[in-house]
Write a protein that binds this DNA or RNA. Structure first.
Lengths: 139, 139
DNA sequence: TTTCTAAAGGAGAATTATTATCTTTGCGGA
DNA sequence: TCCGCAAAGATAATAATTCTCCTTTAGAAA
C-alpha cells in the first residue's frame, strides 16, 4: 500500500499512526492540485464523515511541521497543501487559480551558480523558489 | 510634494482623489517594510483617527487592482503591501518574518534567456519572481 | 459658485478561515 | 490486556477581511 511509507515516517518522528492522519495524507496525495484545507475537508467528509474540521487543520499543521507536507500560498488568500516534498517551483495561473509543480534541475543549477559568484550583501540564502505566473494552454 | 504623482495616477485612472486614499498610499510608502493592513491601520489611526478599518481594506484593494500598490504574500497568513511597483524579487527572513525587496537585472536576464531557449510545455509565462528565503545578517 | 450625483467613506455586522479549549477516545508500549 | 498520554471530537473563540447600508464628498456641469 502506498501510504506504508507515510506510516513509517510517522513512527520515525514519534507521531502516532492514526486513521485520521493517514486519511488526510492520502487525501492530499489524491487531490493532487495543491488542495486547500477546505478541499481536503470536503474530500475527507465523503470517506470519513466523522473527522472534524479542527482535526484536519491540526493534522495539516502537524504534518507541515514535521515536513511530511508542504504549505503553499497563492495570490488569493488561502493556504494550500502539497505532498510533494522535493524542492520545486510553482507555476501559477492567475485566471484559473491553478497551481502546478515545476521542477528543473538545470535552472536550479544556473541560479545557484549565479549566487555563488554574486552574494547578496547582508543576507544568507537558504532557499530559492520561483513563482512563475502565466497561463496554462489548453491542449 | 511626493504624492503629487500618486494624485495624478488616480485622476488618470478615473479614480477620485480623496484624503483617505492619499493618506493610505503615503502610509505604505512611509512604512516601507511591506506593511500589513494592520500596520497601516495603526499608522493611519494616529494621523487620521477617523479613517475606518473597512475603508483601509477597500482602498488597498482598489489600489492593488489599479496597480498603484502591490500585494506581497508570505508563507504566514497575512497579506502585505508594497508601494514599489517596479518588478522585483523578495528576500524573506523566516525567523523575523522580515521582507526586503531585491532587484537584479543581470539575474533577470539570465533567467529570461533560459526560458527563451527552454519553454515550459503547456504554459505561457507572464512573469517570474523569486522568493529567496534565508536570514538577514546583523551588520 | 452652487448644484447634482455617482463614487467613496463610515460604522459596525457578517463571514471565513483558522485556532483554542476542554472532554473523550484510542494508539501503542508495558 | 491495560494504562497513560497523545490525539481526536465538538464547539467556542479569534482574527482578518468583506459586506451592508447609510451618509458624505469629489468633482463635473450648470
Amino acid at each position: 500500500m502506498m501510504s506504508e511509507y507515510f506510516r513509517e515516517q510517522l513512527k520515525e518522528k514519534g507521531l502516532k499512526v492514526t486513521p485520521q492522519r493517514v486519511a488526510i495524507y492520502e487525501a492530499v496525495v489524491e487531490l493532487k492540485n495543491h488542495p486547500t484545507a477546505e478541499n481536503i475537508i470536503e474530500y475527507i467528509s465523503k470517506i470519513h464523515p466523522n473527522i472534524s474540521v479542527g482535526t484536519v487543520y491540526k493534522i495539516l499543521d502537524t504534518l507541515v511541521e514535521h515536513h511530511l507536507l508542504n504549505k503553499v500560498k497563492n495570490e488569493k488568500d488561502v493556504m494550500r497543501y502539497d505532498a510533494v516534498m522535493k524542492k520545486h517551483h510553482h507555476l501559477y495561473c492567475e485566471e484559473t487559480d491553478k497551481i502546478a509543480d515545476f521542477d528543473d534541475p538545470e535552472l536550479d543549477h544556473i541560479i545557484s551558480d549565479y549566487f555563488t559568484k554574486k552574494k547578496i550583501k547582508g543576507f544568507k540564502i537558504k532557499d530559492i523558489s520561483l513563482q512563475i505566473t502565466g497561463e496554462f494552454k489548453n491542449k
